[in-house]
């Protein structure tokens, strides 16, 4: 149950490898310096637009209660205060939601790494009847909006007594079409000889998977982990439906709840947004190479 961020695996001829730029290619007329300046002014302006809402969020989160709703709206806190954050963690149990989000996203990440790598490996390297047809069938799942399955899935969880449990949130994300696709694309690049050599040496299939395939897949597994963790952390609709007890809310669900209850507390809401965003932003900044590769791999020729 992921949001719109997950790319579909519709095949298209997009080559990966953004980081390695090819040697010079003739492009726009070069050498005119005003062009370079103009271009950078434009790029900087776009960067300003991209950052401004987030910057204001951080700034407002340090403003004393009520001061963001004065006219004209202030840009910087005056004086800066930690009071909003203290309020969040003392009265509003945000630490509980932070913990819930971490548990849910962690469980989803761990299980989806395991199950998707297994299936992706099998789709890439085992020959069995109708393998590619089966894989294409699985890929069709990318065209089905997650909303379609939600109502029956909820009723299934009700029968399993998993409504209002983390298990209910985690279950539908433990294995995903996108994850299998991603791993498969990568594993296709591993030479068969390597695996066959291990078989000749008498290694069992699980051993080959565990000690040869997984280590070789490390880069794509990091990519998958970052991807899955972020979409699990950011996911909203499904946890909103499944979690009914506020003690179990994840951050986005809790935040949506808070924002309806505390409409007028601008500064407090901004602090809550910062707490929600900070983990994913930090994760992205430190692992963006892997994340961006995942996006381009989603579009790699299948």
């Amino acid at each position: 149950m992921t949001g719109a961020v997950i790319p579909s695996g519709v095949p298209a001829a997009v080559s990966a490898g953004l980081d390695e730029r090819p040697a010079r290619r003739p492009r726009w007329d070069t050498g005119v310096s005003w062009r370079t300046v103009l271009l950078h002014v434009l790029l900087a302006a776009i960067a300003g637009v991209a950052v401004a809402p987030l910057a204001w969020m951080v700034s407002a989160s340090f403003m004393p209660a009520g001061s963001a709703t004065t006219y004209p709206p202030p840009l910087l806190p005056h004086p800066a205060t930690w009071a909003n954050y203290r309020e969040l963690f003392s009265h509003l149990d945000l630490s509980r939601e932070l913990r819930n989000s971490a548990i849910v996203a962690g469980l989803i990440t761990a299980s989806s790494l395991l199950f998707n790598s297994m299936a992706g490996y099998a789709f890439a390297k085992f020959s069995f009847p109708a393998r590619d047809r089966l894989f294409r069938l699985v890929l069709l799942g990318l065209f089905i909006p997650p909303q379609v399955a939600m109502l029956p899935l909820f009723i299934l969880l009700r029968e399993l007594h998993l409504v209002n449990s983390f298990a209910g949130v985690v279950l539908p994300s433990m294995a995903t079409v996108f994850g299998m696709f991603l791993v498969r694309q990568y594993v296709l690049g591993i030479p068969d000889e390597l695996l066959d050599a291990a078989r000749v040496d008498g290694a069992g299939e699980l051993r080959i998977y565990w000690s040869i395939v997984l280590p070789l897949c490390a880069p794509v597994l990091v990519t998958l982990a970052v991807f899955v963790f972020m979409s699990a952390w950011n996911d909203f609709m499904w946890p909103l439906v499944v979690l009914t007890d506020s003690a179990k809310y994840t951050l986005p669900v809790g935040l949506a709840n808070l924002s309806r209850e505390h409409v007028q507390d601008t500064e407090l809401m901004m602090a809550a947004s910062v707490v929600t965003l900070l983990p994913v932003l930090l994760l992205f900044i430190s692992l963006q190479r892997y994340y961006i590769r995942g996006i381009t791999m989603g579009g790699v020729k299948g």
């Binding site: 909820f154 969880l157 009700r158 409504v163 209002n164 009914t244 007890d245």
Partner: peptide, 10 residues
């Protein structure tokens, strides 16, 4: 309603 249908009512 969700909590009642989901057998997780208070």
């Amino acid at each position: 309603l969700t909590s009642v249908v989901g057998r997780a009512a208070p």
